[in-house]
């Protein structure tokens, strides 16, 4: 048995162990990796930075713990970005009843993180509204496009010092009568709920997407057709956004270098308060290790097969 044949016959559990060990080891090495953010991620950053002051952002948070590795990073980045710009927001889920609770937990953590850093503490009813779960994404988005006040009728929010009030009395939504009044709608999802939002709210509001790697390829045609104004795809998208937050776009650093370049585009500032490089930065190095491992596996598998075939008398498969 040659070395190639032995390699071909290696136990799958050894491969599993190698992946687990490599990924675990990678987590203990945290370095800032330079990157060239994808144009779609950069456009998302720019679109969020372009939201006029005082406008309310609609967040459709359709992810759960099953895609925590990607979606939580997206959601954290979005919250940090909006809070650093003092933008008010509404969040809800239209895809999974578990999603609002996961979003609430993450939001509470980011608010505490900012409080610990001595930054402004976002208040429910005053700066954001939690609309909970809407059972039917198709009907919800369709209705939001036809009549936002009807779609969210009867919803109430808690507000410090005022008890429970109608969401339309809150500073977050008092100037919003229809979907066109929102600054932007951002869908954080691990499913085709982004498709539903695009289909039902086509061109009525600027839509941004933060999606998983599985969903990403099907959202890129929307991005090319300008049906969405920016997409952050998967873990790379998480890091891309963090990198834009840390370095701005077309912004020169102390040495005169531009870390995130958008040829012909205008300059966007970096985020100066709160965390910028966070979960994406922590996982991105490990992603390199895992991807190299996969590429090596494909190459070794094919070379092994080719070398085994070369052996005189070897059976061709």
């Amino acid at each position: 048995m040659t070395i190639w044949e032995k390699l071909q016959a290696v136990d799958r559990r050894i491969l599993y162990l190698i992946l687990a060990v490599c990924v675990s080891a990678g987590l203990f090495i945290t370095i800032e990796i330079p990157t060239d953010p994808d144009p779609s991620s950069r456009d998302l950053y720019q679109a969020i930075m372009d939201i006029p002051e005082g406008k309310t952002v609609i967040i459709q948070s359709d992810w759960t713990n099953s895609t925590r590795g990607e979606s939580m990073g997206h959601f954290e980045n979005l919250l940090r970005l909006l809070m650093s710009r003092n933008l008010k927001f509404v969040f809800y889920s239209a895809a999974d009843p578990i999603a609002p609770q996961v979003a609430r937990t993450t939001l509470a953590r980011i608010i505490k993180e900012r409080k610990d850093e001595g930054l402004y503490e976002y208040q429910i009813g005053e700066d954001y509204i939690d609309l909970g779960y809407f059972a039917n994404a198709e009907a919800t988005n369709l209705n939001m496009g036809i009549d936002l006040r009807n779609a969210w009728s009867g919803k109430r929010t808690k507000k410090a010092g005022a008890g429970e009030i109608s969401i339309w009395e809150s500073p977050v939504l008092k100037d919003v009568r229809k979907i066109e009044d929102a600054g932007m709608m951002i869908v954080v999802t691990a499913s085709a709920s982004i498709d539903v939002a695009v289909q039902r709210l086509n061109k009525k509001v600027s839509i941004g997407a933060m999606v998983t790697g599985v969903v990403g390829p099907t959202v890129l045609p929307f991005y090319q057709a300008k049906q969405v104004n920016g997409v952050a795809v998967g873990l790379k998208g998480v890091y891309d956004l963090e990198y834009c937050m840390a370095n701005g776009v077309n912004l020169k650093d102390e040495d005169g270098n531009i870390k995130v370049l958008n040829k012909g585009g205008k300059e966007y500032p970096k985020i100066t308060e709160g965390k910028t490089l966070a979960r994406g930065s922590k996982y991105y190095g490990t992603l390199h290790i895992a991807l190299i491992l996969l590429i090596l596996a494909v190459v070794l598998g094919n070379v092994g097969m080719a070398m085994s075939r070369k052996k005189p008398g070897a059976k061709r498969s």
Binding site: L15, L293, A297, G301
Partner: peptide, 19 residues
């Protein structure tokens, strides 16, 4: 739930190597 979904990565690696 998260563990179940993450296990697919192991199978992808194995499939990439063998298939």
């Amino acid at each position: 739930d998260a563990a179940m979904f993450s296990m697919i990565a192991f199978f992808i690696l194995s499939a990439a190597y063998r298939a």
